[in-house]
């Protein structure tokens, strides 16, 4: 210790050690921006088609959905919308849990629950889009 320097006092709530070089948060941040921009077009387009165009929501029934999913274009549109919305929303909730969950066990439990939910909905939705049978009885 040099003569005229006092050591910095210990902190009550020290920052946890940085875990090596890791660009996870960078990519996560970038993903939110890019998926957000794409979702603006996908979701607004979806809402316009479903609720406003040709009679809007009144015409939606089993046949309408079956007709749309016969085309690979709408399959890709809906798949992209599902994946991006789930990952965008899931990642947003992850940051909120990181912010507001006060103890580590609550935090990891909530994030685990979130992960399970996102994976379940994404897989179920993907399965339905690809295995949809218009002739189901």
């Amino acid at each position: 210790m040099s003569d005229n320097q006092t050591p910095a006092p210990a902190l009550l709530n020290p920052r946890s050690a940085r875990s090596g070089k890791n660009n996870y948060e960078l990519y996560s941040w970038l993903f939110m921006r890019i998926s957000g921009i794409i979702l603006v077009f996908l979701v607004l387009g979806h809402l316009f088609i479903m609720n406003i165009l040709d009679g809007g929501v009144q015409r939606i029934n089993f046949g309408f959905v079956a007709g749309r999913w016969a085309s690979p274009f709408w399959q890709v549109w809906d798949l992209l919308q599902l994946w991006l919305a789930m990952l965008h929303g899931g990642n947003g909730l992850r940051t909120i849990i990181n912010d507001y969950a006060e103890n580590d066990r609550t935090r990891s439990f909530l994030k685990y629950l979130l992960l399970v939910t996102v994976v379940f909905i994404v897989l179920l939705g993907t399965l339905v889009i690809f295995t949809f049978d218009p002739n189901i009885s």
């Binding site: 946890s16 940085r18 070089k21 890791n22 660009n23 996870y24 948060e25």
Partner: peptide, 12 residues
């Protein structure tokens, strides 16, 4: 930049 790229850095 390495410090600010960490979990508690600019991305928050």
């Amino acid at each position: 930049l390495e410090v600010l790229n960490s979990k508690e850095g600019v991305w928050r």
